[in-house]
Design a protein around this nucleic acid. Sequence first.
DNA 1: CTAGTTGCAAAGAGTTTGCATGGCG
DNA 2: CGCCATGCAAACTCTTTGCAACTAG
Lengths: 135, 135
Amino acid sequence: MAVYNTEQKKCIISFLTDHSNSSFTIEELIAKLEQCDNITKVPGRSTVYRLMNKLVDDGIVKRFVKGHSRHFNYQIVESTSCHEHIHMKCTTCGKLFHMADDETTKILNEILANSHFIVDRDETTLYGTCNSCSK
Amino acid sequence: MAVYNTEQKKCIISFLTDHSNSSFTIEELIAKLEQCDNITKVPGRSTVYRLMNKLVDDGIVKRFVKGHSRHFNYQIVESTSCHEHIHMKCTTCGKLFHMADDETTKILNEILANSHFIVDRDETTLYGTCNSCSK
DNA sequence: CTAGTTGCAAAGAGTTTGCATGGCG
DNA sequence: CGCCATGCAAACTCTTTGCAACTAG
């Protein structure tokens, strides 16, 4: 099945790439896209839903729930190495932090040794307060 | 505002308590309750929704998304000390494990020292594979 | 009794889908 | 030019809400 590289698809991917530190609900994403003036073709609502589902299936975008929200958030998966470490999301400022790789390995090995639990790195995001926000 | 202890509320809480190792979507919960024969008064759909929202607000039940599902799961919060340690959920067998308190403290302190990030314990569930399932 | 709770049905919100049109390759 | 992608509107699913009847305390 051929895949076409349409304006709508490019528009969403480039927006998410430009805001790779933030995540958006579908509603937020649509609102943001409509505000952007450097966008040639703002995709329609159903196209956004369809594209996001496909992008999640393809592993280009990650779907998750932020804090206690009842809606899904979408965020671009930044690189393949992104799967390799723990993420920390600040619930105050919303920024996503990446734990150093060796620190990640150390922590996960410690959990394995003590609790005999193999943590799935890709599924792991810690929520809390970042350095700046805790000051 | 007074709070009445109705059959419907008791029925949901006792079911969740009896299955404190499992979590359910609303749909699953309703189906299970309808199957149970030792239940005097099966609550209606809207009552289940209303009660679950209230139970979550009151901190008696926890709402979260399991794996890549698009629906919320509900699980009873097992005890007050439950907030104090990290949870580990096996994505294979579905069981919830509790990390030892001293281990939790050690890990979180290590993260704080290295990444300057204060992890919210209450928000933290690690997903992965438990000891039995990894064999 | 009285006020919180329930169940029904209807409304609301979020998401998916069928189909005709448009546009990429 | 053929086939995939898009947009609209309608359908669908999940959840909430208004209201009259019910019931715990």
